[in-house]
Simulated assay, not measured.
Amino acid sequence: MTSFCSATVNTTALKHNLQVVRAAAPGSRVMAVIKANAYGHGIVPVARALASADALAVARLAEARQLRKAGIDSRVVLLEGVNLRAELEQAAQLSLDLVVHNDEQLRMLEDFEIGGAFSVWLKIDTGMNRLGITGANLGEFLHRLRNCGSVRGVPRLMSHLANADDREDAKTQSQMREFAAITDTLGCERTLANSGGLFGWRGSHYDWVRPGIALYGVTPFGCGTGADLGLRPAMRLNARIIALREVGKGESVGYGGNWCAPVPTRIAVAGIGYGDGYPRHLGNNAPVALRGRNAPLLGRVSMDMITLGLADHPDAAIGDEVTLWGEELPVEQVARLAGTIPYELLCGVTQRVDVRYVT
């Protein structure tokens, strides 16, 4: 055993998911979103696996620096833009595309001395109410960007869907109508669709799509799994059994004693816990895969360990591998049982988990 727990990332699955995305939006280019350490999968290996994407997107300047330091020369879009002059200078050195979403960012570009330094994506708020200019200010911003010396080419336009994970929600249609109404006649390339828009709202595809969670094999919707969309999970989270015990009738297991054995019970202790990113809020009987069948979680998830019931696994042994999520146990299912979303589980895998890459 080389480690108590590990995450295995399948780069072939990543490439497969990119192909599924292209098939879903054949008329669009793909901006692959790899922010937050590629949703916990490792930003540099994922960028290399998705090198055929038309662009990569990150949220923070540090993420872009990491890519360039690793020799990634793909087009990189900085989704939150920059807020300081020093950041603008670094973005120019790193040859990044910039998202502009407020007047302060535009004024920095207007004051920047290097001609044609940036391709720009102008973000319009159509209902998310986080970042973006209003439709009423679009004409002014476009005029200023087209006359800004540090901007090269025609600005592209973007917005973000707030509720695309719910295919019955009327807000998405409202955002799509607003985006179309204010951009249809402007002659600019556009992007609106996230993963939810990509698979749920064909009218949102435009010139570019911006998949995130779908690239990692996970559904963007509140029900089902990525497999329903033809996707393959890219991450499998595993741990090893490190101890076996016999628990007497009436004895409790773990912190707080919230599970007591109704009969003499054989249990396994696996070396993973919330210190590794496994969700503490999972309750008794949440499934963990062992030898092709599920074993129930018994007792609380602790920092370093979980305990499992072995009633259906009489041959379980120390060193056996258990799967916390992966192809045989979808992360979507685990997230719902934990009262959270798959994004949080994937992004929450901690640094002490040994990450391995396979093809």
Rank of each mutant, 00 (worst) to 15 (best):
A55T: 00
G153L: 15
H143G: 15
R236H: 01
N285Y: 15
R152P: 08
L98C: 03
G71N: 15
R280F: 01
V151T: 15
R22N: 05
M108D: 02
F118Q: 13
A270Y: 05
K249V: 13
L329V: 03
L88T: 03
F4C: 11
R300G: 13
I341P: 00
G339W: 08
W121Y: 00
R210A: 02
T265A: 15
L161K: 11
R210E: 01
A64Y: 11
H16A: 06
R144L: 12
G217S: 08
G275F: 13
T172N: 04
C188N: 09
L310I: 09
Q333W: 00
A64M: 07
L50R: 02
Y206D: 03
E178G: 07
K249W: 00
G71H: 14
E327W: 06
T126S: 07
V331R: 06
G271V: 14
N238L: 14
L282C: 09
E327S: 12
N163H: 15
A7L: 14
S28F: 08
A117D: 14
G115C: 14
L84T: 10
H41R: 00
P296R: 01
E168D: 15
N147E: 09
L14S: 02
A227Y: 08
T12P: 05
G250P: 09
L192C: 04
P296N: 09
E328A: 15
G226Y: 01
P296V: 12
I306Y: 10
L161H: 08
G256A: 02
L161S: 06
A13G: 07
M176G: 12
Q93V: 04
A59M: 02
L18T: 08
L231I: 03
L345W: 03
L145W: 06
A193V: 05
L98W: 13
L282V: 10
C223R: 15
D207V: 10
R167A: 06
G326W: 02
S95H: 15
H16F: 08
V20D: 02
A243L: 10
P262Y: 11
N163W: 14
R167K: 05
G200W: 12
V120N: 12
A55S: 08
A38S: 12
V253W: 04
L109Y: 03
R48F: 12
G203C: 07
T225V: 03
P330N: 02
L308Y: 04
A193E: 06
A117E: 15
R177L: 08
G257Y: 09
G309F: 01
L192P: 04
L78K: 09
S174T: 13
R232W: 04
V247M: 06
A317F: 00
M128Q: 00
G230N: 00
V322F: 07
G292Y: 08
V288D: 13
S52M: 04
T265Y: 14
G277N: 09
A261E: 06
P220M: 06
A261Q: 01
A239W: 11
L18D: 04
R232N: 01
A317S: 01
V33A: 00
A24T: 05
R146Y: 05
C5G: 07
M158A: 08
A32L: 03
Q105S: 03
L229Q: 02
T265R: 13
R167N: 00
K171N: 10
L186M: 08
A57G: 11
S3E: 04
V353F: 10
F179W: 09
I267F: 10
A32P: 05
N17F: 01
D228S: 12
F112G: 03
R144C: 12
